[in-house]
């Protein structure tokens, strides 16, 4: 079963994010970049489905600057077969629609049974690109998926909603956006890392359409006022003082 994973390289979740003083973006020096955690679930699921089918290829497609090559290589080391980087400049920016358009252009006409993406990229937190790619390609899409069962030309997916889940049957090919709980991504093994070096990775210079959504300004989060430690002789006294403060000062209970 051939599938593709659209994957974004993002700052590590541990990274301290600082906005540049002029408000034009974030400071990237010293930031460690990794595969978007939700996209790792996509890579793992694609590999699992390929292994279950006993044949097929997993292709990684990413749009990003040069450094994204490392993340594609990591996915290849996990077991993916080939990679494509649609290369843009380090500070080149466009919106989700333009990004989705370029991805759809690259993905179309290939016989991918499933295109996996992440629930959202943990840098811009948009959660837009998967469903947009699907719409642009005329494919169905199931988002926030925690289970995928493929049988023939159909897949039954479980997706999270408030207070429950929806079980959705979808005709393949389809786009599936991955949520935590879908699987446990494997680590790249040492032989995997060696093999990845020889796997095909196509780098294509890319120009994205101009954005229709523009970022006017970046800001650091508002500072919270310093809190207070509730003192007391014992746990009971502290608890009583806390509940009193929550009722009388905070007025939240």
């Amino acid at each position: 079963m051939n599938s593709a994973v659209i994957l974004k390289q993002v700052p590590d979740t541990e990274a301290l994010i600082k906005v540049k003083p002029d408000g034009t973006g974030i400071v990237k020096e010293g930031v460690k970049f990794v595969i978007n955690p939700y996209d790792e679930f996509g890579v793992e699921e694609a590999l699992k489905k390929k292994e279950a089918a006993g044949s097929g290829e997993v292709t990684i497609v990413s749009i990003g600057p040069d450094r994204s090559v490392e993340s594609i290589r990591t996915a290849l080391a996990m077991g993916a077969d080939k990679g494509v980087l649609l290369k843009i400049g380090e500070d080149e920016y466009s919106d989700a629609l333009a990004t989705a358009k370029a991805l759809a252009e690259e993905l179309k006409g290939k016989d991918y049974k499933i295109i996996f993406c992440g629930k959202q990229a943990i840098d811009d937190d948009m959660a837009q690109i998967g469903p947009m790619v699907a719409e642009l390609m005329g494919l169905p899409c199931v988002t926030v998926v925690t289970k995928v069962d493929v049988s023939g030309d159909k897949a039954v997916c479980s997706r999270e909603i408030e207070g429950g889940k929806e079980i959705v049957e979808v005709a393949l090919p389809a786009v599936i956006s991955c949520q935590k709980g879908l699987n446990e991504p494997r680590y790249a093994s040492l032989p995997g890392i060696m093999k990845a070096k020889k796997k095909p990775l196509d780098i294509k210079d890319t120009k994205l359409d101009a954005p229709k959504a523009t970022i006017d300004k970046w800001e650091n989060p508002p500072q919270r006022a310093a809190g207070r430690i509730i003192e007391g002789d014992d746990a009971a006294a502290k608890a009583a003082a806390l509940v009193k403060a929550l009722r009388q000062e905070a007025k939240v209970i």
Binding site: D95, A96, L97, A100, D125, M126, A127, Q128, I129, G130, P131, M132, A134, E135, L136, C141, T143, V144, R159, E160, I161, E162, P211, K212, A213
Partner: peptide
């Protein structure tokens, strides 16, 4: 920006070829 809204809005944006801001 609920489970439904997050799923629905990007599809509509793509259909109408317009941009959106999430959440």
């Amino acid at each position: 920006a609920t489970a439904m809204g997050k799923d629905l809005f990007p599809r509509i944006a793509a259909r109408l070829s317009t941009a959106m801001a999430s959440d």
